[in-house]
């Protein structure tokens, strides 16, 4: 390929440029999304509240459970799952969606998946802050274990980026993957402990249950916010390691396919 190897300063300035593109595309994406609706930015709060309300009504009717603890329990699970799923699904299709742009400009292919992730992360953070305020009103005020929250969020973001990067390459090369993955996500949605507590999982299945990083993260958010306890660190580290594994795979795939992928797809 190109014979020149960029020197260190060049590498850093290029990386800075790409980070700039991701940052300003993210801001543009947020603005753009807000301008599509009459209620604009309010939807960043209304949408997850709406879907949680639907689930709350459905589940309290089925299980007979109610009360602030169950609301907080359910909402924490739901919003962290939604952050994960919508980022991964949107990020996976981002290369295909931006095919026209990518075939005109010399850009690394991870840029648009990253933008999708960052837009979703922004939306999640808005909701998360409101949920924490609501939790405080419902009787779960901020406690000293809140110091773990930035770490939890960072780990979950690592998982999201880690899962999205390989998927974005895979889904561009083989559309079928998206159908398979959305089924897997549906399955994980019911198995990540969004509606139930990890304590109801039979002992012999526990190691399988915790092999899913999302189950670990959801439980950890609840430990901190509802139970005023630190997350269980060994499990959290395991989840982070799995996330890192995905990330390494994603980076390798992107490096290998960066200049090839557009020639191998049919958009």
């Amino acid at each position: 390929m190109r014979s020149h190897i960029p020197n260190k300063t060049m590498f850093i300035s290029t990386l800075k440029r790409y980070c700039g593109i991701i940052l300003y595309r993210t801001i543009a994406g947020i603005k753009s999304e807000a301008r599509q609706n009459y209620l604009g930015y309010l939807w960043f709060l209304l949408e997850p509240l709406l879907s949680t309300a639907v689930l709350y009504i459905a589940f309290t009717q089925v299980t007979g459970k109610a009360g602030p603890q169950y609301v907080a329990f359910l909402i924490l699970g739901m919003i962290s799952w939604q952050w994960f799923e919508s980022s991964c699904m949107l990020g996976s299709t981002a290369i295909k969606v931006k095919y026209g742009v990518l075939s005109q400009f010399n850009l690394p292919k991870y840029i648009f998946p990253m933008v999708s992730i960052m837009v979703n992360t922004w939306k999640f953070l808005c909701v998360f802050v409101v949920i924490l305020i609501a939790a405080a009103i419902m009787g779960y005020p901020p406690n000293r274990h809140f110091v773990y929250l930035p770490l939890l969020l960072a780990f979950q973001l690592l998982l999201i980026v880690g899962v999205t990067l390989p998927l974005s390459v895979g889904a561009t090369l083989m559309n079928d993957l998206l159908t398979v993955v959305s089924s897997i996500f549906r399955l994980l949605f019911f198995m990540s402990g969004i509606f139930f507590d990890a304590s109801v999982v039979p002992e012999n299945l526990k190691s399988w249950f915790y092999a899913n990083p999302m189950a670990v993260f959801i439980e950890s958010y609840r430990m901190v916010v509802i139970h005023d306890q630190p997350p269980y660190m060994p499990r959290l580290m395991e989840a982070a390691a799995i996330s890192l594994g995905f990330l390494v795979l994603g980076v390798a795939l992107h490096m290998y396919y960066d200049k090839k992928i557009l020639k191998l797809t049919n958009v």
Partner: peptide
């Protein structure tokens, strides 16, 4: 084959008009 640039960091740009515009911005 091979593509060689005589010096590093040659900025090559394809003139493309209006590609990548965001309608709402």
């Amino acid at each position: 084959g091979k593509v060689r640039f005589s010096r590093p960091n040659v900025h090559v740009e394809l003139l493309s008009l209006g590609v990548g515009f965001e309608g709402n911005l």
